[in-house]
């Protein structure tokens, strides 16, 4: 049977022409999430089945009677994409064994936003990871419930403004730290885990491809700026995502069979303030806040370096 996923490394020269998404989708101008999704799907190719959680990407791609999808796609609810995907995985195995599977090899792609992954979908994700079905999970993290109008999720970073962690006198912005979703997923000891952002499109596509080639669960966490919710001008979406990496607020790395592999270090690391000040949701931050966040960023990165230094 032909393998579902192309193994070639993607560069501008070898950029797959395939698009799983058609234009005419209803995403906001400059949406970083739909871009990340488009790129990931390019890397995956057409032998896939996509199971989507509820969220912006589901709404903006399937306004009946039109769909943007050129690959089979299914949506049921917010919290159960991983469970639906588990069922797809089970059926593919059983049908293949019984010789009833039409077509060749197929990869299952499950996707959700930060809410659908680290909040309401956490349980079904954890279950699917533990059971070890063969799928790639794409988490497009834009750090709040954007579909419902910018409400706080567990993935919203400390201090950020959202409509449910507003800038009150007592509590300016989110008081709690961003949930360590990648760390939680890592503890399921899956074969492949990576972080990515559309600012580094080839890195993103190659990680998705690597993840799709392993047998068993792979998890790609994608930081996907939402210009509407982050309060950034649409043209700066990529610039801001790049700053997240350049400031080490969002380091790029892989965990392959438990081994941490840190992305190439940038030449000059920028202060996290540059990343934060570019966004309206952080515009209230004081110098003290910035210093505290810088310290958090440094500590997190040091820990990551330590993890990557282990054999």
């Amino acid at each position: 049977m032909e393998a579902a996923i192309d193994t070639q490394k993607i560069s501008m020269k070898s950029l797959p022409a395939f698009e799983a998404l058609a234009s005419g989708h209803r995403a906001c101008q400059g949406c970083g999430e739909v871009l990340a999704m488009r790129l990931a799907m390019k890397a995956l190719g057409e032998r896939i089945i996509v199971v989507s959680a509820t969220g912006c990407m589901e709404v903006i791609t399937t306004p009946y009677p039109q769909t943007s999808w050129l690959v089979p796609w299914m949506h049921v609810a917010f919290e159960n994409a991983s469970a639906v995907g588990s069922g797809v995985a089970g059926a593919l195995l059983a049908l293949a064994r019984k010789g009833r599977l039409a077509g060749g090899d197929t990869k299952i792609v499950i996707m959700g936003g930060d809410g659908g992954t680290s909040d309401i979908g956490m349980q079904s994700l954890s279950g699917a990871l533990e059971r070890g079905h063969d799928f790639v999970y794409l988490c497009f993290d834009n750090e709040a419930y954007m579909n419902t109008g910018i409400q706080r999720s567990s993935a919203t970073p400390r201090c950020a403004w959202t409509t449910t962690c507003p800038l009150g006198e007592e509590q300016p912005g989110k008081q709690e730290a961003k949930k360590d979703l990648v760390g939680i997923v890592e503890k399921h000891h899956i074969p492949y885990l990576a972080t990515a952002t559309p600012a580094y499109p080839f890195d993103l596509m190659n990680k998705v491809r690597r993840g799709a080639q392993v047998k068993g669960p792979a998890f790609i966490h994608v930081l996907a700026p939402c210009p509407t919710g982050w309060r950034i001008p649409t043209h700066e979406v990529i610039k801001v995502a790049r700053l997240a990496v350049q400031t080490r607020d969002y380091p790029l790395y892989e965990v392959v069979n438990g081994k941490y592999i840190l992305g190439k270090p940038g030449k000059n690391v920028k202060p996290v303030a540059e990343y934060l000040k570019a966004q309206g949701r952080f515009k209230h931050l004081s110098e003290n806040d910035l210093a505290a966040i810088q310290q958090e960023v440094d500590e997190r990165f040091a820990q990551l370096q330590w993890l990557a230094s282990r054999p």
């Binding site: 009677p65 769909t67 943007s68 050129l70 690959v71």
Partner: peptide, 9 residues
Amino acid sequence: IDLPGSTAA
């Protein structure tokens, strides 16, 4: 919806 890619319209 069995019109793949139909948002292009």
